[in-house]
Amino acid sequence: MGGGDMLRRLKVLFHYSKADAALRRGKFDRAVDDLSKVIQAAPDNTAAYHDRGVARQGMGNYRGSIDDFNAAIAIDPRMMMTYSSRGISWKLLGDFERAASDQAKASALSPRFASAHAELGVVYLCKHDLDNAVRSLTTAISLAPNEPNHLKQRGFAFFCQGNFKAAIVDLQQAYDIANDAYALLFLHLARVKTNANASAALETDASQLRTWHWPSAVVGLFLERLSADATIAAAGTPDELAEVQFYLGQWHLIHGDRAEARKALQAAIQACPPWFTEHTAALAELQRLD
C-alpha cells in the first residue's frame, strides 16, 4: 500500500470516528461535515452516504437525506438499511406511498429486519390502513418481541381500530419496558373506553413515570391535577401545541362534553402533521363520534 493510500484511509477513519461520535450526541451538522470529508476521500463509501442521510434527516433536511440515500443505493442496491432510512424520510415528507414501497423493499431484502416491518406498519397507520398496520407490526413483534416501540405502535393501531382490550395489553407492556409517557396516555384512554378502573390504574402507573417532561402535563390533566389551560401552557413547541388538542378532545369526552371534544379533535387534525399518531387517532375518534 502506498503512502497516499494510507493517508487516505487514515483520513476516512479519523472523520468517520468524529462523525459517529457527533451522531450519538445528536450533533447532526457536525456529523454532516465529517461525513462529507469521508465521501470526498472515498466517493464509493456507501455507509458514509447512508449515515450522512441519517444526519440530514436529524436536521430536518429530508430532501437532502433522500439525495444521500439515493447515492448509497446507486452504489449498492442491496443495502436494505438504506431503503428503510429513505422510507422514513418519505414518511416525514408525507409521501406515504413511497415510504411504504421503500419499507417493503427493505423487508424483502431482509425478511427478518424487524424495524422495516415496524416502519411499514407505521406508514399503514399514517394511511389509516389499520388492518395492514396491525399485520406488519405483528410481524415486527414476532421478530423482536421485547422492542417497546413496536408494541407501542401496535397498541396505537389497536386503539384506532377500536380494539381497546388488545391495545391495553400492548401499551401496558410497552410502558413497563420503556416508561414511555405516550404509551401511558393511550393506555389510560384505552382503559377509559373499556370502562376499566382507569383513574386508579393511571395513578399507579404514573407513580412509576421517570421523566416528567412533555407529555407528562397531559398525565396531570387526566389525573385532574392540571387544568386544560395549564396543560396548554405546558406545551412548549408547535408540535406539542398540536398534540395537546387531541388529548383535550379525549378529556372533554371523559367529561361528557361531546361538542367541545369534537372541536378539539378537529383542531388536532388541522394542526398535527399526518404522520403524528394523534392525527390518526383524532380521525378515528371523530368517526366513532359520528
Rank of each mutant, 00 (worst) to 15 (best):
A21E: 13
A21H: 13
L23Q: 01
L23Y: 02
R24K: 14
R25H: 08
G26F: 01
K27G: 05
K27F: 14
F28T: 00
A31E: 03
V32T: 08
D33G: 07
L35H: 00
V38Y: 08
I39Y: 03
A42H: 12
D44T: 13
N45Q: 09
Y49I: 05
R52N: 06
R52L: 08
V54M: 12
G58H: 06
M59T: 02
N61R: 10
Y62I: 01
Y62N: 01
G64W: 02
S65N: 05
I66V: 13
I66N: 09
F69A: 00
N70F: 03
A71L: 03
A71C: 08
A72T: 03
A72M: 04
D76V: 03
P77F: 01
M81R: 15
Y83K: 05
W90S: 08
K91M: 13
K91H: 15
L92G: 06
L92M: 07
G94Y: 12
D95M: 05
A99Y: 06
A99F: 07
D102G: 07
A104K: 09
A104M: 09
A108M: 10
A108H: 11
L109H: 01
S110I: 02
A114W: 04
A114E: 06
S115D: 14
A116T: 00
A116V: 01
A118R: 07
E119L: 12
L120K: 09
V123K: 06
C126T: 05
K127G: 10
K127L: 14
D131V: 15
D131P: 11
T138H: 04
T139P: 09
A140Y: 03
I141V: 14
S142Y: 11
S142T: 12
L143N: 09
L143K: 11
A144K: 10
P145D: 06
N146R: 12
P148I: 01
P148W: 00
N149P: 00
R154G: 08
